[in-house]
Design a protein around this nucleic acid. Structure first.
Lengths: 188, 188
DNA sequence: TAAAGTATGTAACGATCGGTACAGTTAGAA
DNA sequence: TTCTAACTGTACCGATCGTTACATACTTTA
C-alpha cells in the first residue's frame, strides 16, 4: 500500500517552502502532507519529533546553505571584495529578488522565536561577523566594518518586509543596489 | 453573573499587545480572553466578526495613531526637520527602543498578509509618502527624498527584525541613530 | 525466494480551535 | 420600581489540530 521513493533530504526544501508560505503555526500537517506528497506516516517516519523536528531540519539546511555559499566565502576568500559582491548576488538569487521571504527573519518576529532562538540568533550573528570580517580585510576600520555589516543585514531584512508588505519586488532590488553601493564606497 | 465595565476602546490596546506576542494564529481566543480579562461572550459582543474583526480593529487603531503622531506632522509641519526628528523619537518610543515588534511588519511576513493586505500596504505606503514629503520640503531633491524615505522605513523594519532575532535592543538604537544621521546629512 | 528493514496509507486519539446560543446579570432611562 | 438594552459567563458545536498506532506494501539483502 505504499511505494518507497522519498528521501529525507528531498523533503526538507519542500518543507522550507511550506513554512515560508504558511508560517510555523499555519503550516498544518494537512498542508505539509499535501505539498510534500507525503502522508503522516512518512512524515513521522522521517521526522519522529513532528513539526518541531521538521522546522529544525529546515533551519539547519538554511544554515548549511548560507555557511557554504555566503559565510565561508566572506570569511576565507582571498578577494574579500569579490566575496561581498558574490554575497549580494547570492542573496538576490536566494530571496528571488524580493519575492521570497526570509524564514529566519519571519521566525524572529513570530512567537515561535523562543523555540528556535539559538538557530535564529546564530544565523544572524554568523552573517554579521562573516561580513564584518570581509569588510575589515577589504580595508575598513574594525568598528566601521562591524556597524556596516549590521546595517547591511538590517537593510536586507527590512527590504524583505517592505517588499512583501507593498507587494512590490522592486523595493528589494533598489535596496540591494543601494546597499551594494554603500559597501563599495566604504571599501574605496 | 456579570459586571458591566469594559469599553471596546479599552480592549483594543490589549488585543494589540496579545497579537504582537502571539501572532494572529497563535493568539487563540483562550489567550485573548485571559489577557483581556474578557470572556468569549464579551469579546463577541464587541467584535461580532471574531478574531478577524479584532485584528482589523487593532490595525485601524495603529493606523489612527501613526496618522496623528507621525504621518500628519510629516506632511503638514511648518518645520519639516523638526517633524522628522519628532518621527525618530516617536518611533523609538513606540517600539520601546527595539523591545517591541511592529505588528504590521509581522503581518507582512505572515500568511495572514493576504487577509489584511490593504491595511498593511496602506500603513507603509502612507509612511513612505509622508516622510518623502517632509524631506522634499526640507530641501531634498524629489527622487532622493523618495528613495531616502524608503531606505529609512526599511532600516526601521530591518532593525526590529534583527534586534529581536539577536535579542539585543542596542541593535535598534544604533540603527535609529545611523538613520537619523543619514537623514540630517541629506537635509544639510 | 525468504527474511528483514524501510516506507507508507489509514484510522483513530484527546486536545484545542473559532464560533454560537443563551440564560443571567448589570446599568441607566422612564 | 419597572422596563430595556447592554454586557458577561457557561456550555456546547463541528472542525481541525498534532500525534500515535498499526497493518500493509515495497526494497534490499542474503
Amino acid at each position: 500500500m505504499a511505494k518507497t521513493i522519498a528521501e529525507r533530504a528531498d523533503v526538507v526544501p519542500l518543507l522550507a517552502e511550506v513554512l515560508r508560505e504558511y508560517g510555523f503555526e499555519g503550516a498544518s500537517l494537512a498542508v505539509i502532507g499535501e505539498r510534500t506528497g507525503l502522508g503522516k506516516g512518512s512524515l513521522y517516519h522521517f521526522f519522529p519529533g513532528g513539526k518541531e523536528e521538521m522546522a529544525a531540519a529546515v533551519l539547519q539546511e538554511i544554515d548549511r546553505w548560507f555557511e557554504a555559499e555566503v559565510y565561508r566565502p566572506l570569511r576565507e576568500a582571498t578577494d574579500p571584495r569579490a566575496a561581498i559582491d558574490g554575497m549580494i548576488g547570492a542573496v538576490d538569487d536566494y530571496f528571488r529578488s524580493g519575492r521570497r521571504i526570509c524564514l529566519v527573519g519571519a521566525f524572529a518576529l513570530d512567537n515561535v522565536r523562543d523555540r528556535f532562538a539559538t538557530a535564529v540568533k546564530g544565523y544572524f550573528a554568523e552573517w554579521r561577523s562573516a561580513l564584518a570580517s570581509a569588510l575589515k580585510r577589504a580595508g575598513c576600520a574594525p568598528d566601521q566594518a562591524h556597524s556596516l555589516a549590521e546595517e547591511t543585514i538590517i537593510a536586507i531584512q527590512g527590504a524583505l518586509v517592505l517588499s512583501r508588505a507593498l507587494d512590490d519586488p522592486t523595493v528589494f532590488s533598489r535596496a540591494l543596489e543601494t546597499t551594494q553601493a554603500r559597501l563599495a564606497k566604504a571599501m574605496a
